[in-house]
Design a protein around this nucleic acid. Structure first.
Lengths: 218, 218
DNA sequence: TAGATTGTTAATCGATTAACAATC
DNA sequence: TAGATTGTTAATCGATTAACAATC
């Protein structure tokens, strides 16, 4: 078995396919073609087949894919066949929203099990059914729930400190919502999500369009 | 002037450079090299120069870039030389968080000027200093503030309806946080932000790493 | 001038698309 | 069998990287 390097874009799409399949399954749909999936999520049909081919042969020629089977395969590939307890740092607005977002009906197995903040005004408060803890309690919560993934929802200034603390406490992966790029050791799986960047790509494209109209190009 | 197609990845990075430059400027740093920027945001130096080259020549050979000038250029390119009033639909947790996020100190000119929901329990409530309005009031708010960009923060089921309404009311761009891909006309600038996808890429990589350890590969 | 760093071209790398044989 | 759709190879396309001439 030659393990080919899987493009990150493929993983990204796989996650989207997976959720699309969940919706089809809810609707009671049994079989789906690469064409259907492609149309449903806005990519090309060969793209869908190529992406799946990195992981195996899941379909039947002339027929398509079994929705439920393919859904389970994709979940398995993404590591979502088991629950993922999350540790969240930052009990501000974004932190509160993320904690309820990841607890939502569509949570795919993610759930925040501990919220942390070093603001004394926030420690001890309730966010949903969770208490806000001081940073010192991290090891206890990590141990109790077997947490491996930390989510950072603090301002840019303190994000690096939080990351360092998470690394020190043995977390394996960090999702950072602060608009800075952080330094973490190579063995940490790390990702930045930047909510502003997406808006700025939008405004860039609005500007682009206007200048195209100006010059008469399309 | 030949307008070369700019890769989306370039715009993405430009937004990151721009924010990095803001931080340098706050610190009073006058000059920066492509090397410094590259290191600060985690890309390669030629990448930085290539990205900038799509838009002009901003540096001085042998010297580098003037921080303040380059910051202003990047803001201009991204369309951030003017304020962007936003319309937000969905007064749930995510909506509330986004509205305060985009009002934050680092808001880059974005500000939510109207929050909408069709839940009668939410209409009339305050979110920060904003009232939650019923959908019928969209045209009024759009007109009053000259809104062009709408943000969708409702559950997957109702997201398409919201998008349709935004299009009908003449918005030019839509940022969708619901985990579905929506159908919008070609003339609408559209983007999906999926908060789960990012976590799932993390868990995929954790799984990948484990299997690599298992097989002794690196 | 010598040293530094940009802007840009050419080479490389990787991802997407097109096409089709395999096969249900 | 005929029609449909997968899995996969080859061709294309696009983005990143390396290298270096230009120039401050």
């Amino acid at each position: 078995m030659k393990t080919q390097r899987v493009p990150e874009a493929t993983i990204n799409r796989l996650s989207v396919y997976s959720r699309f399949l969940e919706r089809l399954d809810e609707k009671g749909i049994i079989t789906v073609s690469s064409n259907d999936i492609a149309e449903g999520v806005g990519v090309s049909p060969p793209q869908v087949r190529k992406d799946l081919a990195y992981f195996g042969e899941f379909g039947t020629r002339g027929v398509g894919y079994n929705v439920q089977d393919l859904m389970r395969y994709t979940l398995k590939i993404l590591g979502l066949n088991e629950p993922w307890p999350l540790l969240l740092v930052g009990a501000g607005n974004l932190g509160i929203a993320l904690s309820s977002y990841y607890r939502g009906f569509n949570n795919r197995g993610f759930s925040v099990v501990g919220i942390f903040d070093n603001d004394l005004n926030k420690i001890g408060r309730k966010v949903g059914n969770l208490d806000v803890y001081p940073p010192e309690m991290m090891p206890e919560i990590i141990n109790k729930h077997g947490v491996r993934v930390g989510v950072i929802a603090v301002p840019a200034k303190t994000a690096q400190d939080v990351a360092d603390l998470m690394v020190k406490n043995g977390l394996d992966a960090i999702l950072n919502f602060a608009p800075v790029s952080l330094n973490v050791p190579d063995h940490i799986v790390y990702r930045n999500v930047d909510l502003s960047v997406n808006l700025e790509i939008l405004t860039f494209n609005l500007g682009l369009r206007e200048s195209q109209i100006d010059t008469g190009n399309l």
